[in-house]
Simulated scan of single mutants.
Amino acid sequence: MFGVDTSELIVVAVVALLFIGPQELPRVMMKIGRWVGRVRGYARHFTAGIENVIREAELEEMEKKWREENQRILAQYPADRHYPDPPAAQRAAPVMTSPPPDAEPTLPLEAPAAPDDDPTPPSARPLP
């Protein structure tokens, strides 16, 4: 805490006890605590304000870069120009989630499990 050692704090406490007195010391300590709390609050408020200003400056810089990149892209690819279709390899195939209604039924991809692949223990299996 500000480079103050324990022995220095003890010396300050003894001097405060001698000059302020034991009756007034608690009240003075409360006032000092309140003052330190206010100073910390002001410091937090000031720090938050500085961080907000920095954040806003960064956002403005990023928006400027985005606008410049957007202008570059728009200049490179004008809207009134006709562009050729991409090659077939670049076009994505449509993804089918279910077969069409007129499709023939297909066989399952996996064969049914063999009796030896049965996960039940041998003692629980019925006898053949």
Rank of each mutant, 00 (worst) to 15 (best):
L107K: 04
D85L: 12
P84V: 08
P105C: 00
A75L: 09
A93H: 10
P100G: 01
Q76H: 09
A89G: 12
D80Y: 05
I73C: 06
R72H: 07
P84K: 07
Y83M: 09
D85M: 08
Y83S: 09
Q76E: 10
A79K: 15
T97D: 01
E69I: 14
P105E: 04
A88Y: 05
K65C: 07
R81S: 05
K65H: 13
E68K: 10
P87M: 00
A103N: 03
T106P: 00
L109I: 01
I73P: 01
V95C: 05
E69P: 01
D102G: 02
Y83G: 05
P100T: 00
W66M: 14
P86K: 03
K64E: 13
D102P: 01
P100N: 00
M62N: 13
W66V: 13
R72M: 06
V95L: 12
P78N: 09
P108I: 00
K64Q: 13
A103M: 06
Y77K: 02
A92P: 01
E60L: 15
P78S: 10
E68F: 04
I73E: 06
D80C: 08
P100C: 00
W66K: 11
Y77P: 01
K64M: 12
T97E: 04
V95M: 11
A103L: 02
L74W: 02
Y83R: 08
Q76W: 10
S98W: 02
E104T: 02
